[in-house]
Computed example of a mutant assay.
Amino acid sequence: MSFLSFLLGEKKKTASVAKERLQIILAHERNGRSASSDYLPQLQRELVAVISKYVSIKPEDIKVNLERTDNLEVLDIKIELPDAAR
Rank of each mutant, 00 (worst) to 15 (best):
M1L: 06
M1P: 04
S2W: 04
S2C: 08
F3C: 01
F3Y: 05
L4G: 07
S5Q: 12
S5H: 10
F6P: 00
L7W: 04
L7V: 12
L8I: 10
L8R: 08
L8P: 00
G9V: 01
E10S: 07
K11C: 05
K11W: 01
K11I: 08
K11N: 09
K12I: 07
K12Y: 05
K13N: 10
K13S: 12
A15Q: 09
A15V: 12
A15K: 09
S16P: 00
S16I: 14
S16T: 13
V17R: 03
V17G: 00
A18Y: 00
A18E: 03
K19M: 07
K19V: 11
K19Q: 13
E20Q: 13
E20A: 12
E20F: 04
R21P: 00
L22G: 01
L22S: 02
Q23T: 07
I24P: 00
L26Q: 09
A27Y: 08
A27C: 06
H28K: 05
R30D: 14
G32I: 06
G32P: 00
G32Q: 03
R33S: 08
S34P: 00
S36G: 14
D38L: 12
D38P: 02
Y39M: 07
L40K: 01
L40H: 01
P41G: 02
Q42C: 10
Q42D: 12
Q42V: 15
Q42L: 15
Q42M: 12
L43V: 00
L43F: 03
L43C: 03
L43W: 01
Q44T: 10
R45K: 14
R45L: 13
R45T: 14
R45I: 06
E46P: 00
E46I: 10
L47P: 00
V48S: 01
A49D: 15
I51Y: 02
I51R: 01
S52M: 05
S52Y: 04
K53I: 12
K53Y: 06
Y54M: 12
V55A: 06
S56F: 05
I57G: 01
K58V: 06
K58F: 06
K58P: 02
K58G: 04
P59W: 05
P59H: 11
E60S: 11
E60N: 13
D61K: 03
I62C: 03
I62W: 02
K63H: 06
L66G: 03
E67I: 11
R68W: 02
R68L: 11
T69K: 10
T69F: 07
D70Q: 14
D70A: 15
N71G: 09
N71F: 08
L72R: 12
L72I: 15
E73F: 07
V74L: 13
L75N: 01
L75P: 00
I77T: 03
I77Q: 02
K78G: 06
K78M: 08
I79W: 03
I79F: 02
E80N: 15
E80F: 11
E80Q: 12
E80A: 11
L81M: 13
P82M: 03
P82G: 02
P82I: 06
D83S: 11
A84N: 09
A84M: 08
A85V: 04
R86W: 06
